[in-house]
Write a protein that binds this DNA or RNA. Structure first.
Length: 322
DNA sequence: CATCAGGGCCCTG
DNA sequence: CAGGGCCCTGAT
């Protein structure tokens, strides 16, 4: 039970779309967050402190205002809260200026109307590098349901449950907590061969081989190299992390088969049984959206998933495979 | 009941 | 550089 509560206010750079930035309907649900329109509750392990956060939309796309409540079991200093606020600005790209992207997007037939509809959206990431790596490992070779099960099992065993603002949510474990755990123990949680990747990645973080904040200052190639050197991280996982965690808006050099089918339908109206070849898609996105290609594709992708909330999209359901 | 593929990656030859 | 194996689960 987190009893102390602090209030902060954040001013994202306009335009800012609160819901589309803080909630991604294509992500599998995890027990560390809960969203409803206008409000996001989530937990965050920051500087070793388990925190409960509530984000509330108190503005508009054109005049954004974001109220942040922070719950903690222990007292938090103003300096701590200042560092926390800066981290949140980074993670959610609150200071991203979308003017140039919007200007270019509006001239594009596919992206134009979507960029207008979702004006102010950033791609959604809540996680630290370590946390995202764990999630990326759980995504590999698994259906959505299985990823959810594995995440829940890990949270139950190694996470902590936080109660705040009437919510009860899991909070991520620090890498050090998992470093003693054996591969065999992890396997009892039915993560299968992923146990080795989780173990090796955890060790790398606990040993300080890898530092998220140093990596942020490095070049794209250095970041990619550091990720690819991790056991269990290949081009697909590295790609997600380079775009979502390190905010490379042009990161798109690999498209998995199910994404390929979805893009083929959205951009070329081609049936999933007859998708456009990966390399052709990549050339197309490069030519059309160049340095914003990941962000552009994210807008079109996210639009589809938001639509799915209200209407049934048969061809998509067939591809999701819960 | 058996078989297979799933939002990859590693390792081997 | 191609292809088999890996954990487990639900679909067929």
């Amino acid at each position: 039970m987190l009893s102390r509560c602090y209030s902060l206010e954040l001013s994202p750079v306009a335009p800012f779309n609160f819901d589309a930035t803080l909630h991604d309907p294509s992500h599998f649900p995890t027990g560390d967050l809960e969203w409803q329109p206008g409000t996001l509750w989530r937990t965050m392990l920051w500087e070793g402190r388990p925190l409960g956060l509530k984000f509330e939309n108190q503005g508009t796309v054109a005049r954004p205002r974001l109220a942040l409540s922070v719950w903690s079991g222990r007292e938090l200093s103003p300096a701590f809260l200042e560092r926390l606020a800066r981290e949140i600005v980074y993670r959610y790209s609150l200071d991203l200026d979308l003017a140039d992207f919007n200007a270019k997007a509006h001239r594009d037939p596919v992206l134009g109307p979507i960029a207008l509809k979702w004006r102010g959206m950033r791609s959604c990431n809540h996680s630290s590098l370590y946390e995202y790596l764990i999630i990326a490992i759980l995504l590999q070779n698994a259906t959505v349901r299985r990823s959810v099960q594995m995440m829940e099992a890990l949270f139950e065993r190694y996470g902590t449950r936080l109660q705040f603002d009437g919510k009860s949510l899991h909070c991520f474990w620090p890498a050090q907590k998992l470093v003693q755990v054996t591969e065999e123990e992890l396997r009892t949680l039915k993560v299968g061969y992923r146990a080795r990747s989780i173990k090796r990645i955890t060790q790398a973080f606990a040993a300080g081989d890898l530092d998220e904040f140093e990596l942020r200052e490095q070049t794209y190639e250095e970041q990619r190299g550091a990720l690819m050197r991790l056991y269990g991280v290949g081009p697909a996982s590295a790609g997600y992390i380079l775009s979502d965690v390190f905010h490379h808006l042009d990161e798109l050099r690999h498209i998995s088969p199910w994404e390929q089918k979805i893009y083929s339908k959205l951009f070329f109206d081609r049936e999933p049984s007859d998708p456009v070849p990966e390399q052709e898609l990549l050339r197309f996105f490069e030519e059309r959206y160049s340095r914003y290609k990941m962000l552009a594709v994210h807008y079109v992708w996210a639009d589809l998933w938001w639509k799915r909330r209200n209407e049934r999209i048969d061809w998509l359901e067939d591809l999701i495979r819960l």
